[in-house]
Amino acid sequence: MRPEDAEGAKPAIAVAGLAAGRGRMPAFRDVTFTVPPASLTVLVGPNGAGKTTLFEALLGLLRPQAGSVRILGRAPREARRYVGLVPQSARLAHEHQLAGREFVAAAFRARRLGLPLARRETALAVGEALAAVEAQDLADRRLGTLSGGQRRRLLFAQALVNRPEILLMDEPLAELDPAAQRTVVGLAARLRDRFGLTIVFSTHDVNPLIGIAERVLYLAGGRGVIGPIEEVVTGEVLTKLYGVPMEVFEARGRRFVVQDDAVMAAAPEEVAAAR
């Protein structure tokens, strides 16, 4: 569903005038956007722009310093069971010897105390989640033997096992080769189209999502801009956002952000780091 189709529909995520951060200084302020249901929004920005902070605010783990966050019309803490997070896989122990289905099952109603005695229900939910990301073949594989792309699939399945309506994906393309990146982007699009999930997808590079994501939320310089990729990832908008002259070149349908003759793949932290 394109954003224009969703006009008038109740937004899945509504953020108004948000300022949030871990320390005293917010990572960003005055960020306002809405995300319609069954849509895919890319979240980009350099390191430290507040992508993780924004996710924490959406999950109700961080109190806004100003502004408001509504998830499906509720406060984030009350909407928790409708939101799934796919965390960065870099922090997973690589040597786990458990089967894929155990990894997914562990997330099923994990906040409840006591033994998981509803075995049939668990098996059903795990089976559905694995099928949604076409990972049935990973059910009995040991985690430690899987490739980066396969692990990403299981992380998706884990986040889906409690049947959320909104899926937040934290850098799911990190450390993947281009082929695996395409597969992961395709999976996200499929979850939106077939299951009506609302997806917010953070990444360093918008290019793999051009033509797939409806919108981009670009965080930089303590602020954020949201809109279609072709309207946001432009020299004019990014110059305002960063407060320094920025240029965007297009080649073969990809966009490259440029600052002072240094070329970046749509996210400028390499340059920032080099300075």
Partner: peptide, 23 residues
Amino acid sequence: LAILFRPLRIVTINEDFARAHGV
């Protein structure tokens, strides 16, 4: 252990996931 089983299992297997989901 029986009481703790489910939260302990998810904290052990994927701590980031557990934290994000309010465990």
